[in-house]
Structure formats: C-alpha cells, structure tokens
Design a protein around this nucleic acid. Structure first.
Lengths: 141, 141
DNA sequence: AAGATACTTGACTATTTTAGTCAGGTTTAT
DNA sequence: ATAAACCTGACTAAAATAGTCAAGTATCTT
C-alpha cells in the first residue's frame, strides 16, 4: 500500500498556500521553489484543485492561487478526492448482492478492506489544512 | 493509495488455511481452487510466508502447508510484512536529522504521513487471523 | 501597445510496479 | 516408479506513476 506523490504534493502545496495566503495570491512558481515540486506537475495538480473549487486562480502578473474556502473547512479528504488519490483497497472483481467473484458468499477478507477504508477515511476527514499549518507553526516559530 | 493483490491474496490464503487447518496440511492447489488465486502466484507468496515462519511446509504427496503459530498470534501486520506489502507513505527523498530534502526544516507534511502510518499499522496490528475466521463463521454457518 | 508573468490544457513518455506466467527443478507418500 | 506437491528463479505484459513538453490565453505593469 502506498500513497503517491501526487497526493503528497497536493497537500504540501496547499499547506504552503494556506500559510502564505494572506492577501495576495501565491504563484505556483513560488510554491514550486519553496517545496521543490516541478512547476509543470503543480499545474496539473492545481488544475484539478480548481475544478473541485478548492482554490481560485488569479491570472496575470502578480497572479497565482488563493484558497477558495477557509483552511479549517478544507479537509484532507477533499484534497485527495480532488487529485484522484483514492484509498482503494483491492476490490473483488465481481461483486453481486450475495458474494464476490461469482461465488455464493463474500470472500473471506471482504469486510476487512471495507473496515480499513473507513478507518483511513476517518483519519483524513478529521484533518484540515488548518491543523496542518498549526502543527507546523507550533513546531518552530 | 492502494493495497495490492499480493497482500490481499496472502491474507485470503492464510484465512483459508486457518479454517481448514485441523490435522492435515492444506495444499496450495486446494487454496488456489477455493480462493481463485493462481497456483504459481500462491507459491511465490507462500515461499515468503515460510521464510518468515508464518507457515510450515510439508513436502511430498498429501503435503501442503500448516500454520506455524496459533491463528490468534498471527497479526495482519506479520502477514503484510512477510509479503513485502508495505504501508509506505511517500518518503521525503533525503531526510537528515533536521530536515527533509536537504532543507533546514522538516517538510510541512512530514508528521502527517508518520501519523497515518501509525494509524494504519495499529489497525492491522490489532487484527489477527483468528478474528478474520471468526467474523466469517459468524456471518454464515 | 508591448512585454512579462502566470495560469491553462492536452499530449506525450520513461520508469517503476504489479500481477502474474513459465520452466525447471526437488521431496516424499504410496 | 510415479504422481502429488513443494521450491526457485527468471521472465514479461500491462498498468500506474511522475513527470516533461508544447502551445496556448489572460491580465498586469510600464
């Protein structure tokens, strides 16, 4: 099981944005430099974030992105969802009402993955961008 | 983020083994048929499980595998560990004592992944093979 | 008006991982 | 002997990942 860079980058970039998001929009270029993420890749990621209305774009010179909601209201689940980072446990290929893979019963581990999915989902759903920024500013002023 | 089939197969196969593990060893062929997993792939998986002393092999006709410990003592973490299914959150490429990626400070999301890792680890470490088998026998006799 | 900055989009690609397959063994009960 | 079943290592097609590249469009500053 692994988390991909895309999800990590999205969270990093938004955490960066949340920190510097006072009045002016933050350019991807700045985020790219501060966080060490390829500018082109960031653009892909922010395109998705914008479509899901997590950020707003400001074009032109001095443009950039701003958060579309309060940092407190942006949960990590929202972010992962936006960039297609899925908590996908392996699925049984065919699941009918009664069982998996055409068998009469659910496969032995079916419930396990369901449980895990919820477990991880809850973890991310309790964390907001604000929490992340707070943790970091506490750690070192 | 995803869980791979290898981990799922390992758990499924061991759950199967735990259920039919009365006196005689269980052949991979049987598990393969019951669980719908390729025999060749199962062999790869069981080779690893054997090396980590989760199962014991019995060679020859009527051979197969038996659990090497009580089902209660086999946690899912042990299984995932054995088949190299890692709960790996994306790592910062270079982590020195002070920071990530050569920077002076830890990256903004560093702690987050650490927390998540623990969260998932705990989930799997609380579940034993016995729990899995019990859940299933309760569900339908 | 010109130029620079920065967002926008879509196509492309090298690398890695995954989920196996395949081939050739060895061991042991009957 | 022989068949069942374990054992091992090498190989590979397909998918996912982590980007790059190219060609824009919008808008601010001068």
């Amino acid at each position: 099981m692994k988390l991909t860079s895309k999800g990590r980058y999205a969270v990093m970039a938004l955490a960066d944005l949340a920190r510097f998001n006072n009045v002016n929009p933050v350019s991807l270029r700045d985020i790219s430099l501060r966080q060490g993420i390829s500018l082109d890749y960031l653009e892909q990621i922010f395109s998705k974030l914008r479509k899901k209305e997590i950020v707003q774009s400001v074009r032109g010179t001095q443009g950039g992105y701003i958060l579309n909601k309060k940092a407190k209201e942006i949960k990590l689940t929202n972010i992962f969802d936006a960039v297609d980072e899925k908590v996908k446990t392996v699925q049984c290929k065919k699941e009918s009402k009664k069982g998996c893979n055409g068998k009469a019963t659910k496969c032995l581990t079916h419930n396990l993955w369901d449980e895990l999915e919820n477990h991880i989902y809850n973890f991310f759903d309790e964390k907001s961008l604000e929490d992340l920024v707070k943790e970091n500013s506490e750690r070192r002023i």
